[in-house]
Design a protein around this nucleic acid. Sequence first.
DNA 1: TTGTACGCGTTATCAT
DNA 2: ATGATAACGCGTACAA
Lengths: 339, 339
Amino acid sequence: MIRKKRTTLDDVATLAGVSAITVSRAIRHPEMVSEKVRAQVESAISELGYVPNPAARMLATGRSNMIGVVVPSVTNNVFSDVLRGIYEIAGIADFDIQLANTRYSPALEDKALRLFAAQKPAGLIVAGIDQSEVSRDILANIDCPVVQIMETGPDPAGFCIGLSHFDAAHAGTRHLIEQGYTRLGFLGARMDPRTQRRFAGFRAAAEEAGAYSEQRVVTTPEASSVTKGAALLADLLAQEPTVDAIFCNNDDLALGALFEAQRRRIRVPDQLGICGFNDLEMMAAAEPPITSVRTYRQDMGLRAMQTILSCVDNGPVTPTTIDLGYEVMARQSTARQRG
Amino acid sequence: MIRKKRTTLDDVATLAGVSAITVSRAIRHPEMVSEKVRAQVESAISELGYVPNPAARMLATGRSNMIGVVVPSVTNNVFSDVLRGIYEIAGIADFDIQLANTRYSPALEDKALRLFAAQKPAGLIVAGIDQSEVSRDILANIDCPVVQIMETGPDPAGFCIGLSHFDAAHAGTRHLIEQGYTRLGFLGARMDPRTQRRFAGFRAAAEEAGAYSEQRVVTTPEASSVTKGAALLADLLAQEPTVDAIFCNNDDLALGALFEAQRRRIRVPDQLGICGFNDLEMMAAAEPPITSVRTYRQDMGLRAMQTILSCVDNGPVTPTTIDLGYEVMARQSTARQRG
DNA sequence: TTGTACGCGTTATCAT
DNA sequence: ATGATAACGCGTACAA
């Protein structure tokens, strides 16, 4: 049986024998209503299965409890972890999350932000710091807390919670050098701005140590995957067989590279050191365990949400930048026999 | 500079020198408006950067262009693929996706559906067929197309797009038997209803071949991961070292099991056959490549969206069930030397 | 503590 | 082809 009309505040009010506004108050500010009335209202609500109409609420208040989240990919493990952090808080704090997937397209990002802006969100979480002019403009003028995650950088559009990918990649590369590797290679996919900065970090560290060669850099604009990691390593070996360690754009590539090395009976870490980026769960479980630069992705989601919540509660706060840092998780894949 | 008031239909109307309702029509039914007026309106819209207020629209029409998606996890690769399919269509068809994460909790699923129902969605996509009584009730009474994905089963709540996990697991297990393995084991994590049905499929096939033993079944209620796969295999080997092949709940476990086997110098596939479930991208790239039962997850998301779109366009259609099937991707991890 | 009047931005309905 | 009016469900401001 289909109920044609949804139950409204008025229905509840009638059943409870009070006026609509009283019901509204009983829901939002229970302390402003007498004990007795509150009980009547509550039982009426559950009897009717009343749920407030978010659209009407938004129209009346001019704001929603929606938090818009803009990410470039939903398939990537990296963002799944961020989302987990976000939903963790969203659940307990009763916020609606609306996810926009830009697929690494600035145009789609503009579109998503424009749509969000029209909905008076309680907050906005956007991945990365490479928004277009248009997007920056929307973010600058919107009347809600904005949190950029994944990365820290100059001139943030609001709050910023992330890390320096340049530094993190630099540290991972330093680790390779400290392990005694001298002919470093780089495997990269997608090559979006964030990836580029990781590459820059690699390059800087490698050059400082005289371990860099353009011949040992292999990249593709396509999305990263384990399969692609294997293919890129194959390309690299064809081009410069003397490479003795690789820094990978991310963990998928690193895992694929490990598999390819195994296929070719290349000994890891002795003949080839492998370092990934992000430290996905599987890195530690691999055989050999793969060294990776750990990032705190779930924490970024968590903190982004907490930031927004505290703005909602305490009114506007001056935006801050939080650097969550990174950690080089040294494992067997780079544990070269010294000497 | 912060614009205090958002631009409304009236603003556009004033600038264009027409009335609000005309602007509304120019947007939704351009063919009902004269060429001249349409041009004026369009230029006014882009000059003001007008974006319709979805809340007001919803309040007026009683329906939204939101599609609610209910999944038990956002971290799991399996659902990421489904989401990719969904967002692919959502982008081009201008639907808002709202994602609810139930974390495998029926109570959270009820809550999510109730909230969605209050928003008059254009459609609902829910993962799985194991909804609670409350949820089934909501789905039965809601006035929009409902699509259950991931799995087919009796008594669907609406459209149903998936596969029989029992059959798929049965087929994967048959494959192991056909390869000559006779002492089959099972690795399982989470053990939600869908997983249970996969186990049932495994068990049925194994028993039919006299290859089943309860001693070779190792499961955990915790979430699956590569690490967990390694741990479960270790448990299994401690308990029943004679196992000669394992069917894994999913690919994460399979990969972890492979790593653990490598650590112990157990030869795959000769000493131990490994079969996963879902056929994530990395399975084919592993060394050795891992056999897995392929499912069509992105396609499920895609088709679920298309189903909803066609309902929106063509009015109510009688719900159907689509079985997308599965395919056993036989690879080296089960390519045992015969004889 | 509780109630009344009005407005939020849009669309449906009924004119013109 | 275009416009006036009411209504959607709720919250704010003010009143009782």
